[in-house]
């Protein structure tokens, strides 16, 4: 931290750095700051039920700021003091984000907390030299800027963990293995296939083949909008792996557009058994197992 160079005049306080002064000021005026913050949009919007709660939250934030100022590391967002309030701040930003505010708007609201504190500081130090006042205000402004940064960091961490969680859920949801019949499993693929998903599909399908002793595995790609060479390669790998395990893989539901793409890309799916729809694939597999579908209506009996 910058050392105090201004010579001490007749102020009551002994030689103190601006950050110490800010820390002392925050401790002194804690109640007032908390009261003023409780009227700011950020606190008002989060603690709608009781103002006391907002004041209480404000107090804890002021305490944290005072602790950071006392440690002298006002521009360090990793300061120990902030860890205490991170949860509080996360709750507040989460509440604001839920009400549809952008990150920039939340950031602006946090910035709005600065003005009341700076005004209080200026009012609190009426008889100090201008130079010293300027340094104290600057230290406080930096501190508030760091608070803003911490809030944003907390918000971003929250968002990131949400994305991670959803990605996991998506992977789980996206690859259900359905047992269609004794010895027949199917994977209906929906949505865009990327390498990671194809890998998951491949692994879960192979596991299912072992678990259920399935002789037929159906890959239904009706819900896949586009196929590129990479996805096609993954499909062929899956088919080859399933065959190595002793089962047969049928790909069904190739859309006309996808069929054109595959031909256009010059991919050879010659070794892959394909059927138009899931029903046709199932009929093929059932036929392979020796269980044909016959119509129940009299006189209508026949092979599908």
């Amino acid at each position: 931290m910058r050392s105090e160079a201004v010579p001490e005049h007749d102020a009551a306080a002994p030689q103190a750095s601006p950050t110490d002064e800010v820390g002392a000021f925050l401790n002194r005026r804690r109640e007032q700051i908390a009261q003023r913050w409780a009227d700011e949009p950020l606190f008002r919007a989060v603690f709608t039920v009781s103002r006391d709660e907002a004041v209480e939250a404000g107090r804890s934030v002021v305490d944290a700021l005072a602790q950071v100022a006392a440690s002298g590391r006002v521009e360090d967002s990793d300061s120990a003091g902030f860890t205490v309030v991170r949860e509080q701040l996360a709750r507040m930003t989460a509440a604001r984000s839920r009400s549809g505010m952008s990150t920039a708007q939340v950031s602006g609201e946090v910035d709005a907390l600065r003005a009341p504190v700076v005004n209080l500081l200026v009012a609190d130090l009426p008889d100090v030299p201008a130079e010293r006042l300027r340094e104290s205000t600057e230290a406080l402004t930096v501190l508030m800027g760091t608070l803003r940064l911490v809030v944003m960091e907390t918000a971003l961490t929250e968002v990131q963990s949400l994305i991670d969680r959803q990605q996991m859920q998506l992977l789980e949801v996206a690859t259900p293995i359905i047992r269609l019949w004794d010895g027949i499993v199917a994977v209906p693929l929906i949505g865009t296939l990327d390498s990671a998903r194809s890998q998951v599909v491949m692994e879960t399908l192979l596991e299912a083949v072992v678990d259920q002793q399935a002789r037929y595995a159906i890959l239904d790609i009706t819900g896949v909008p586009t196929v590129d060479s990479l996805v096609a390669q993954h499909l062929m790998k899956t088919v080859a792996a399933v065959r190595l395990m002793g089962a047969e893989c049928v790909v069904s539901g190739i859309r006309p557009a996808i069929a054109q793409t595959i031909v256009h890309l010059g991919l050879d799916l010659g070794t892959v058994i394909t059927r138009a729809g899931l029903a046709d694939a199932l009929a093929y597999a059932l036929h392979g197992l020796g269980a044909d579908i016959v119509h129940a209506t009299p006189g209508g009996a026949g092979h599908r």
């Binding site: 491949m202 692994e203 072992v210 399935a214 002789r215 792996a241 065959r243 190595l244 002793g246």
Partner: peptide
């Protein structure tokens, strides 16, 4: 008979699809 999924994946990644080889799920099959 009875090739494990991990083994099948490894062979496919190695490019060894063993086209001339017949496969089955289990010894019984």
């Amino acid at each position: 008979a009875g090739m494990r999924p991990a083994v099948a994946l490894t062979l496919v990644e190695l490019g060894l699809t063993l086209p001339g080889l017949r496969t089955a799920l289990s010894t019984g099959a």
